[in-house]
C-alpha cells in the first residue's frame, strides 16, 4: 500500500505540487492525466525521491521514503520507466537488464542472465541481447527499459509517459507489454497523454491540475461522467483533436 500525505513541492518560489493526498492499494492500475505543466511528472518523481518533497510524507507499507540509509532499499521496490527510456548507453541490452540486480547482489549473474533471456524471448528481442541502445528502435528501447525494471521484481512500477517519444506503430509493442505485466497483479501508476490507453487499461484515473488532484475515480467515472469543469474542458479539448 502506497500512502501519500499532504505532498508539496516547490521549485524555488514556484509551487508545483500543492498538497496531494492519496492511497493506492496493491494491484491497482492508476492513470494520471492532466494538462501539460500541472505537475504530473514532478508527482511521479517525488514518489521514489528523484525529486525531494518540500513537505509531506510518502509511505510504502508504512515505511517512509526519505533521504536515509533505507532509501536505496525503498527504491528497489519501486520501478520507474521514463519517457526517454534512459538505457545505459555504455552497456548492451543484456548488461542493461542485469546490471543493477547483479551489482546489488539481488541475484547471481547466471540466474539474472537466465531470467533476462526468458523475458527478452517473450518480447522477441532475444537476438538483440548484444546490441547497444543506439542500435535499437524507440519501441525496442522502451521494452528493454521495462524489462530492466521488471528484473528488480518491484512492487510498484511508475511510468512517466512511456509511449510519447515513440512512433505510432511502436506504441502497441509497449502497451502490449504493459498489459502482460498487469496480468501479474503488479501495481502500476501511469502518466500518459494516450487517453484511449488510460481509459481501457487503468482501473482508476486521477485528474491533476495546478498541482492538485481534482478528480479521482474509476476510468468510467472520469471519462464518461466527469464532474469538475476543468476536467470537462480538458477532455473536450482532447476529443477535438
Amino acid at each position: 500500500m502506497l500512502e501519500i500525505k499532504n505532498l508539496k513541492k516547490n521549485f524555488g518560489k514556484k509551487k508545483v505540487l500543492k498538497g496531494i493526498n492519496l492511497t493506492i492499494e496493491k494491484g491497482e492500475l492508476v492513470g494520471i492525466i492532466g494538462p501539460s505543466g500541472c505537475g504530473k511528472s514532478t508527482f511521479l518523481r517525488s514518489i521514489n525521491y528523484l525529486e525531494k518533497p518540500s513537505f509531506g510524507h510518502i509511505l510504502l507499507d508504512g515505511i517512509e521514503i526519505r533521504d536515509n540509509d533505507k532509501l536505496r532499499l525503498m527504491r528497489r521496490r519501486i520501478g520507474m520507466v521514463f519517457q526517454q527510456f534512459n538505457l545505459f548507453s555504455n552497456m548492451n541490452v543484456l548488461d542493461n537488464i542485469i546490471f543493477a540486480p547483479v551489482t546489488l547482489n539481488i541475484m547471481s549473474k547466471e540466474s539474472a542472465i537466465k531470467k533476462a533471456r526468458e523475458m527478452l524471448k517473450k518480447i522477441n528481442l532475444l537476438d538483440k541481447e548484444k546490441f547497444y541502445p543506439n542500435e535499437l528502435s524507440g519501441g525496442q528501447k522502451q521494452r528493454v527499459a521495462i524489462i530492466r525494471t521488471l528484473l528488480m521484481e518491484p512492487e510498484i512500477i511508475l511510468f512517466d509517459e512511456p509511449t510519447s517519444a515513440l512512433d505510432p506503430e511502436m506504441i502497441g509493442e509497449v502497451t502490449n507489454l504493459m498489459r502482460e505485466i498487469a496480468k501479474t497483479k503488479m501495481t502500476m501508476i501511469i502518466v500518459s497523454h494516450e487517453m484511449h490507453f488510460i481509459k481501457n487499461f487503468c482501473t482508476r484515473v486521477l485528474f491533476m491540475d495546478d498541482g492538485k488532484i481534482i478528480e479521482d475515480g474509476s476510468s468510467k467515472e472520469i471519462f464518461n461522467h466527469p464532474k469538475d469543469e476543468r476536467l470537462k474542458t480538458f477532455l473536450s479539448k482532447i476529443k477535438n483533436i
Partner: peptide
C-alpha cells in the same frame, strides 16, 4: 552524460558511487 541515465540508475537503487563508476564515467 544525460541526467536521465543517472536517474535511471538511482531509480534502480544504485548508489552514487556505482552510478558514477559504471555509468557516468564510462559514458
Amino acid at each position: 552524460v544525460s541526467e536521465g541515465q543517472k536517474e535511471a540508475g538511482f531509480a534502480l537503487g544504485l548508489s552514487y558511487l556505482q552510478v558514477m563508476k559504471h555509468i557516468v564515467i564510462p559514458n
